[in-house]
Nucleic acid binder design. Structure first.
Lengths: 179, 179, 179, 179
DNA sequence: AATGAATGAGTCTTCATTCAT
DNA sequence: TATGAATGAAGACTCATTCAT
């Protein structure tokens, strides 16, 4: 079924180019024409690969969520020490801050256009990956990361990344600590 | 002579009733008709008090931001100890979690429809209030609060508020700690 | 009935101030609020003196038509010679060119919003006044005057008034001519 | 591939069918829905070919102006005598009286929605065509034609076309006359 | 499969008119 | 009587979606 592969590739290619538009403008303000222009195709082609606008937003959230998690798991070697894993996590989050912010915006939007389960599940996937990679009590750690990312979206210059990284490092020394 | 109307009061009353709709649906999906229905007036009246839809979103962000900060400052007595102030802060944020989430969504939306300075400034007002009320190194503390709120928006049942409060309390004992 | 006089005066005063707005923008583009502002009253007062917008346009056409004709008859002394009467007519039309243009625009508009009889009758009143004051064959003369006025509306600098006056004068010498 | 459309041809077809509506109702009272119905298309198609209502009025004025002038030049053979050319002109204007009236109404309307330069220029194009085709002193002749057309709009039964034609003929015999 | 012209329901916004004061 | 706030039907314009080619 070589055709199916092509279809999937096309869909993925389209989603990749839609991401920024949805994140920057929000679902309600994105027009199909804009999407088509950004992707470089006709609106007709968009409708050939997705039944409607909402389906694009749906597929997009799943797409970016999975991609991010897979990338994180590739980066954080399971054999490393807790301290090392925390360091790798910090590096990953800092580096992909923009991308993660975009994903969060997507999820927040998604929760508003649909019931909310999909967006909730996406967040839980992230959380599960975090628990899986780092272990221990990551309740507050997760909030710190989410908070840092959101703050980065609203006020990029107002977040002191280094101090967050230092805090992360400090947590490694408290194995029984809040982390 | 017609009923003499307190314009500022009418505007405030309208904004109060618009808040939830903007937060739940996002700017782009809110219809003026919906707003009018939610407020309980005609669309004409909406346009009598605000020149257009965007102005409502603008005014709304300023409105809720100021209201929240004012309320926080009223709650957290300046004479209390650091530990007490942290406790009051935690109680305040937990209690108004929904409202604060709504405000954050508003700010994120606002950043998308306008340049972003207004939304950034709104966040900085919150941060300044935090620093003012609690003091010390609140860089990570701010992220924890923001993250907790956002997580509450996306997955209300997935946030363990108590553990966040416990963490908050623990910070009080580390005067030289990361807080 | 002193009240009636006041009402009539108010109506006349309102019409006087509405004239230019209707002529400059055309019936369809004039807003009641603009009229009220131009007159210096509230919209409510407008509706106190006229039942609706169309009635204002109706009354306006009658108002200006009668005023112009009365003024012309006052100016052109019946005892004068044909040549003198033509000279006075030319002077009158030139002097009030703007005002007459405004009236014509009003009539043209009126014909479009209503059946057209009122506007047609207004034109006939002018024509009758012309025949009455000047006499003779004024079929082409009337067209010249109307044409000169309309041209003045569309291209004020493109009309050579003096040449029209000269032509008028020349007609006086041809008692059996086309005039 | 979709139907390949000749954009200019579509625009022209639309304009042709818009003319009467604009002339009969005046710019301000024409509804886009009415235009769409008159043209026999959807409002969406109207906006596909013209950015807004004003642009349709703009294009319309240019369209009819050029068409009329071109037709006149086709009709009046340059080799004919002055008397013949005047006759042809008279025939042309009488025959297309309605159409020319419509154009004049359009120009008057246009002057009110825009600055007025376009409408003025349209009139000057007509005047230039007249001078070009007939020659001589056409200052008063132009006014006669304009006046006759406007009178025809306001009071079709009140204009004696034949007497205007007779006057036109008479002018041919006065080479040094006012024509 | 791909295009983009076409559709028309739906959006923001206006404005003639009403009416409480 | 006068005011101007309020109404809501209607207007200009948009845009998700369809479909002929």
């Amino acid at each position: 079924m070589p055709k199916l592969v092509d279809v999937e590739q096309e869909r993925t290619a389209i989603l990749d180019r839609c991401l920024e538009l949805f994140a920057r403008q929000g679902y309600g303000l994105v027009r199909m024409r804009e999407l088509a222009d950004a992707v470089g195709v006709s609106t007709g082609k968009l409708y050939h690969y997705f039944p409607d606008k909402r389906s694009i937003a749906d597929a997009l959230l799943a797409h970016v969520g999975l991609a991010d998690v897979a990338e994180a798991q590739r980066r954080i070697s399971p054999g490393a020490s807790r301290r090392e894993r925390l360091g790798l996590l910090g590096a990953f989050v800092c580096e992909r801050r923009d991308r993660l912010g975009v994903t969060l915006l997507l999820a927040l939007d998604h929760r508003r256009i649909e019931g909310g389960d999909t967006a909730r599940d996406a967040l839980r996937v992230y959380r599960a990956a975090l628990t899986d990679q780092i272990g221990g009590d990551d309740e507050v750690l997760f909030s710190v990361l989410i908070g840092m990312i959101i703050r980065g979206v609203l006020d990029p210059d107002g977040v002191d990344i280094d101090r967050h990284l230092a805090w992360l490092e400090a947590q490694a020394g408290h194995p029984d600590g809040p982390l």
